[in-house]
Amino acid sequence: MTPAPTANLRKLIARHRLREQLFTIIGLLALLIGLLVLLGLFTQLAVTGAPRLTPEFFTSFPSRIAEKAGILSAWVGSLLVMLVTACTAIPLGVAAGVYLEEYAPKNWLTAIIEINVMNLAGVPSIIYGLLALGLFVYQFGFGQSILSAGLTLALLILPIVIVATREALRAVPGSIREAAYALGATRWQMVSHHVVPYSAGGIMTGVIIGLSRAIGETAPIITIGALTFIAFLPTPPVTGEFPFLSFQWLKNPFTVLPIQMFNWTSRPEEAFQLNAAAAGVVLLVMTLAMNALAIWLRYRIRRKIKW
């Protein structure tokens, strides 16, 4: 070999090495920039909102005076809406997941249901809002109530719950099912005594992620026409008289945290924007905590359960 091609080859190798190192830096930079931008934004939010995060902020109603305004009706509303969402989405989603994973025959109907669930997960949330406006608010006459909002968000997170349930069920090995059958269990006994309890952790993870998505959703709640100025609480669910339980609150008008934040953000006065930042901190802490819990739960399950 003549010396010239070797030198060229060395140069080529050096060039590729350089590009390789350059990309390592670019990749790390992209990752860091992405994370740092978000960290910067979150810090800005926390610093702006911190002075307003007093105990009174959580126990006051919204007000026309920014300094006196709080998020009492918003977080109570969020909590009650989540209650309706959880009570609807969990049973429906888990049942659908169990059917698709444990019962469904391999036929065109199952295929349609599966494709449909995938497709529903991709439908923008505002479309669910329009569905709720046409169906729940007007067709069923639920009005602009906690019930309408809770059901809307339940439909929205249903695909998340279904997919998570299926994944959790799939992780249970077939030998467990065969063992149950071998002892004479029916399919439902096998499912309800063994497979579902063993996958409860995975299902919980999906449910928490779904609920955290629902708690931050704004667009569909605006679409059903949630009022933004609510200076009262819904009727309490527990009453002093027989039968001690009241479902009047389901029909009450309401506001939720993201709506309250949206309302404050779109005000021109700076004082209200401080409130928006404070509400944003509360919202962010809630959703991130729920997600962190879900991720932690999943890692724990992965580590602990070795079939």
Binding site: L38, R213, T265, A276, G280, L284, T287, N291
Partner: peptide
């Protein structure tokens, strides 16, 4: 986790 941040916060 970042995928879970509510969009209204990003709007802010």
């Amino acid at each position: 986790l970042l995928g879970a941040v509510p969009t209204v916060v990003f709007g802010y």
